[in-house]
């Protein structure tokens, strides 16, 4: 992230949840920021029912569009089939050498209540509760996450003290 602006920026996709700080941070560092708030539909479905079907279809961008895709907390909120479809779409949308950065909850922090990962000015991330929203939680083990994003190559992964897991995948 620190290096986002280094090479004149690329095209980044943020699938939500929408957060003004992230938009401002990212949009000023990359050539183009695309935002597709997948959480909006999940939240609306959770509030008003029924659960939205085929949410992944909203990721309808052309093939090989993005240098980077931010997949923060989304997979934790999707059941297996939906998560697989999102992973497939991410692979299609990523350019060769494009990256996917995924954040997943850890066991200690896992909760249905929705948090937003917010980028602060010093490029660090903190968690902020998103309104008073609860969504179903589908916790996956590291191996399951790697399998889910299988067409990608895992570059690095980290676990934080609070349990949040970060995975960086690359499409070769």
């Amino acid at each position: 992230m620190e290096d986002l602006g280094e090479e004149g920026g690329g095209q980044i996709l943020d699938v939500g949840s929408v957060c003004p700080e992230n938009i401002d941070f990212l949009a000023r560092r990359v050539k183009r920021l695309c935002v597709c708030d997948m959480f909006f539909h999940l939240i609306r479905g959770a509030r008003n029912g029924p659960r939205p079907a085929r949410t992944w279809e909203r990721l309808d961008y052309p093939k090989e569009s993005f240098d980077g895709i931010l997949l923060w907390d989304l997979m934790d909120r999707l059941e297996d089939h939906d998560a697989e479809e999102v992973a497939k779409r991410c692979y299609n949308m990523a350019k060769p050498d494009g990256m996917v950065m995924m954040l997943a909850q850890g066991e200690r922090t896992a909760q249905k209540k929705l948090n937003t990962f917010v980028i602060s000015d010093d490029s660090r991330v903190y968690l902020r509760p998103k309104q008073d929203v609860e969504l179903p939680l589908y916790m996956r083990r590291n191996r399951q996450i790697m399998d889910l994003l299988d067409p990608f190559t895992l570059m690095t992964s980290f676990i934080y003290r609070n349990g949040t897991r970060e995975f960086l995948f690359r499409r070769f």
């Binding site: 949009a27 050539k31 695309c34």
Partner: peptide
Amino acid sequence: YLKAMIELEPH
């Protein structure tokens, strides 16, 4: 709700 392509003045 936002589905947008955004270009802001660079940082």
